[in-house]
Amino acid sequence: MITDILTAVAVVAAVGIICAVLLALASHFMSVKSDERVGSIRECLPGANCGACGYTGCDSYAKAIVEEGAKTNLCVPGATAVAEKVAAILGVEADAVESRTAFVHCNGHNGAAEEKAIYEGIKSCKSECLIYGGSKACIYACVGCGDCASVCPKNAICVEDGVARINKKLCIGCGLCVKTCPKGIISLIPTDAKAIVICSNKEKGAVVRKECTNGCIACKKCEKTCPSDAIHVENDLAVIDYGKCISCGKCAEVCPVGCILFPKEK
């Protein structure tokens, strides 16, 4: 009886010890030196693994900073504080975190957008959108019930003339409205972005014409005019790549329907 127990214990212990020795030897002889900065940068990062930096998680972002020279200011939750710490470890100058604000890509205010029905239900974008995509003819249009305004923690959104508008000065770029909008027409854009496409309609030009006077008709004039190849018509809608945009404002000048916003210098 006792010998049975002892053999069992001895065998398992022996297997364990053999494995342990093997692993210890392996990790000693085959260890790969890793850059210690990766570890210390990883400790600075928030560890939320949110992916806002464009990498799969905090681990791979830390690795990318050291090995691929990724920018130090990509962590959105950590903001400037983290960017500074990371830059200190690397011994480089800290870049400010690019601040972003939300923008409603629709200019179908009452008068511009055709109505296809009158909605008299609960005042909520979500419920209005359930009925044939809302009262406006354009299914990409802001229905203007203000679901986004009710979730905004800074009261930066109000509905003007049937379309939600965001006060850039109050917006903190949290993105709650982006998630709430049932039409998906709110997006986060760089705060210093000048040219903004203020339409989300992905229909062909002729259809857009019937639905709204302010809609993008995909004429591609902006695409041809742009000197820096930053604006492209994708799925019959102009889209600006802010990595390339030089804020020259030429696209806004040539747009025949005025769906590109470009505030003039004051």
Partner: peptide, 22 residues
């Protein structure tokens, strides 16, 4: 069961070290 868990865990760890190196 116990011995197999032990062996498989150690083995996978060992393979990882070897792969990382070579």
């Amino acid at each position: 069961t116990i011995v197999f868990i032990l062996v498989i865990a150690a083995l996978v760890q060992f393979i990882e070290i070897v792969l990382k190196k070579y």
